[in-house]
């Protein structure tokens, strides 16, 4: 399936999907979206990319292994849950950065958002890992 147009489209699609998923992730706290959905959206981008370009290209595009991606996500989640301890709160409490400037732009930053990012990374990593493994074995190249 080496088709120049398809390859270009797949690249464009991937970029759009990644940007879109980050957007979905960040607005997830107030509108439909969040880490799970964002992660799956990114995966669809990679699937499309992978179907057209093969798994090797996906791997070289990623630079880090999917296992590392998942690990990073899990660590991010755990860190987000532990951060409140340093503020003298119980773990798992949400800690927010109070800023009028950000609030006026409709952006709230806090540990729940960080945790959501962790979810995003894990979900992305999990599905990428599964896709790449399956592609490797069925020799989808």
């Amino acid at each position: 399936m080496r088709n120049l147009i398809l390859i270009k489209i797949s690249k464009l699609y991937l970029v759009v999907m990644i940007i879109f998923s980050v957007f979905i992730l960040l607005r997830g706290h107030n509108n439909p979206g969040g880490g799970f959905i964002g992660g799956i959206i990114t995966s669809t981008g990679f699937i499309f990319y992978g179907i057209i370009n093969g798994s090797e290209r996906v791997k070289s595009l990623l630079r880090i292994t999917t296992i590392e991606l998942m690990g990073t996500g899990l660590m991010t989640g755990i860190v987000a849950l532990i951060i409140p301890v340093f503020s003298g709160l119980e773990p798992f409490t949400g800690v927010w950065i109070e800023s009028d400037l950000l609030a006026s732009a409709g952006i709230h930053l806090g540990t729940p958002v960080l945790f959501d990012t962790g979810i995003y990374l894990v979900v992305t990593g999990v599905f990428l890992s599964i896709i790449i493994s399956i592609m490797d074995v069925v020799k989808w190249n």
Partner: peptide
């Protein structure tokens, strides 16, 4: 600080 209750449950109440 979240208007999406489902998401808040996921990432905060039931983290």
């Amino acid at each position: 600080h979240g208007r999406n209750i489902v998401n808040v449950i996921l990432v905060d109440f039931r983290a």
